[in-house]
């Protein structure tokens, strides 16, 4: 009985560390606290069990969730592989795609954090944590969303909807698998 719960504690601790999404990690941490309070009860320490159940499972979980809600930064990497030449058109296109993304961010109460970089997509995926990569190659714009972000589906449907009339030749990817969006 006791050993089962101890093993479960280890399992949930490892899951909380290994989960890519932070909100799920917080939930696993709450379950871990609940099991540990039960283990305290089995060790016949009911006082500590009550304190652990209240503080670990309730207060800490709510506090973590509020903190995650407050710290909602949406990291966008912007690369473009166009040489100089038609710079005005490039700037206009960049402004338009960024305006779309930032409109999405204000709708979801996120803080957009745009980073302009010269690195390629693979380099960014390996070296940085990101939510969205916008790659501009001449006329075509490729948008690549991270699978760890909560807003992948949201921004896909947002871009699809807003881009319908504009004809930006937009492509949307989720990390590895590609799919075509727009005309």
């Amino acid at each position: 009985m006791l050993k089962v719960f101890l093993v479960l504690m280890v399992v949930f601790a490892v899951m909380a560390v290994q989960t890519p999404k932070l909100r799920q990690a917080v939930v696993y941490l709450g379950i871990f606290s609940l099991i540990s309070s039960f283990v305290y009860l089995l060790y016949s320490a009911p006082d500590v069990a009550i304190a652990e159940a209240v503080i670990g499972s309730t207060l800490a979980t709510i506090l973590y969730l509020v903190a995650l809600k407050k710290y909602a930064v949406y990291t966008i990497y912007f690369t473009d592989t166009v040489d100089s030449g038609l710079e005005e058109a490039v700037a206009a296109r960049r402004a338009r795609i960024l305006e779309l993304v930032e409109g999405f961010c204000t709708e979801r109460e996120l803080e957009a954090h745009v980073i302009y970089t010269a690195e390629g997509k693979e380099q960014i995926q390996q070296n940085h944590s990101y939510d969205l990569i916008v790659m501009q190659e001449g006329e075509a714009v490729t948008v690549c969303g991270s699978r760890e972000s909560y807003h992948v589906d949201g921004i896909r449907s947002h871009l699809l909807e807003k881009d319908k009339g504009a004809g930006n030749r937009l492509r949307f990817q989720v990390q590895t698998e590609e799919e075509e969006v727009g005309p």
């Binding site: 009911p46 006082d47 304190a51």
Partner: peptide, 11 residues
């Protein structure tokens, strides 16, 4: 019974 000021206050 088990419990006390700290636990009840937290609740």
């Amino acid at each position: 019974t088990p419990g006390g000021g700290f636990q009840g206050g937290a609740i």
